[in-house]
Amino acid sequence: MSHPLLKLDHATIRFGGLTAVSKFNLEVQPCELIGLIGPNGAGKTTAFNMITGVYQATEGTIHLNGRCIAGVKPHELTSQGISRTFQNIRLFGSLSVIDNVRAAMQLHCKHGMSASLWRGARFKAHEKEVENRALELLDIFKLADTRDEEAKSLPYGDQRRLEIVRALATKPKLLLLDEPAAGMNPTEKEELMHLIRFIKDKFQIAVMLVEHDMTVVMGICERIAVLEYGVKIAEGTPDQIQRDPKVIAAYLGTEVQKEAPIDA
């Protein structure tokens, strides 16, 4: 194991006087399934935004594959192997289902503007290939039948899955899922757990998820990190986390006392 896939070293982010994430240390190994939990406003999504380049860390460093990502733009990070979904679904609503996936594939597309204009035989072959790959992906997630529908007209669960397909289309090494189970019923959650495990094995990628649903997190994650007020208070296997007194105090057991601080 030379480099971890992702390494956060004292990553800190401040917004004015507020420290949203403080000295966050974390390593993610290739093909690992890791969970990030914590009460509302603990800084989970902010940590995601820091890893994906949406926000820049104020202090500390983040390395992806041994390379520092300070100042790297989100779209460049995607080409280096990070992809994500969003807490509140952000599909390309006016594009069809398949075009959502195709749009994400342009990253690895060999033909650009001039080929699109010339539309030669090579371009057509490439486009066919892209379409087939997109369909293959959609097929895995049972979305191929909806290929020509507008993304925004899909049912909620399908939209969530399409977001995952779209993220996978960029061929990531690390997939970040921001509350993938939000708004799902127990059956859908069950399916989602299978799906996430399946993705990890099939595509051989690391998956990191932020999730509130404990069944999901405890059920699939190999390792869990817990954030509270932007500080990592625990890290370990699901068993360890469930028994950790700090975590229980902060999160699992005594909600009444510690009723989630709304993002201060």
Binding site: T78, L91, F92, R102, Q106, H111, S116, R166
Partner: peptide
């Protein structure tokens, strides 16, 4: 022609959601 291609879907992606587009490797 520009818009109706894998490359060209990027224009509409940027229009629909710029944040999501940049997270999908599209340079807005």
């Amino acid at each position: 022609s520009l818009v109706n291609s894998t490359y060209g879907r990027g224009f509409i992606a940027v229009s629909d959601d710029e944040v999501a587009a940049s997270s999908m490797g599209i340079n807005p």
